[in-house]
């Protein structure tokens, strides 16, 4: 049966969707990803959809499911690389991918994941943000 490969990189799982998904394939991916999260104890899932030209309500639901399921398994999900035309279409369709983190590209997605699980220290940022004036 067709499967989309899942790569493990440190404490993250990486998925690059390079083919047009039909429903069965998307469901397999959902299943495989959740099993991988459980097996590897991954803390983050990064899904690259830059090669995906169509995200319809089914695919959108699968992305949402993956995010909710992995959150329950203590992993965050970031979807990266969405094409502008896909974003326009999704919103008009009525699907806003609530609860799914997104980032423009893989690099920013990785940063976001590190931020979410707190593996990167930002000494500079902290210094800048530290002296907070309380504005009421």
């Amino acid at each position: 049966m067709d499967r989309i490969p899942i790569l493990k990189m440190g404490q993250f799982l990486l998925v690059t969707i390079q083919v047009d998904l039909y429903d069965r394939l998307a469901l397999n991916l959902e299943n495989d990803l959740i099993n991988m999260v459980s097996k590897t104890g991954a803390r983050g899932v990064l899904i690259d959809i830059s090669a995906v030209s169509i995200v319809d309500s089914f695919m959108g639901r699968i992305l949402g499911n993956i995010a909710s399921m992995s959150r329950i398994m203590d992993a965050e999900t970031v979807v990266v690389g969405m094409q502008p035309a896909v974003a326009i279409t999704l919103v008009e369709l009525g699907l806003t991918l609530q609860g799914v983190y997104t980032a423009l590209d893989v690099e920013k997605g990785m940063e976001l994941l590190h931020d979410k699980i707190g593996t990167i220290e930002h000494p500079e940022d902290e210094e800048e943000e530290a002296p907070h004036d309380d504005i009421d």
Binding site: S53, I54, D56, F58, A85, I88, T89
Partner: peptide, 10 residues
């Protein structure tokens, strides 16, 4: 194109 194909897909 994307809108049409997405609608068609639904």
């Amino acid at each position: 194109q994307t809108k049409l194909i997405t609608a068609a897909s639904e």
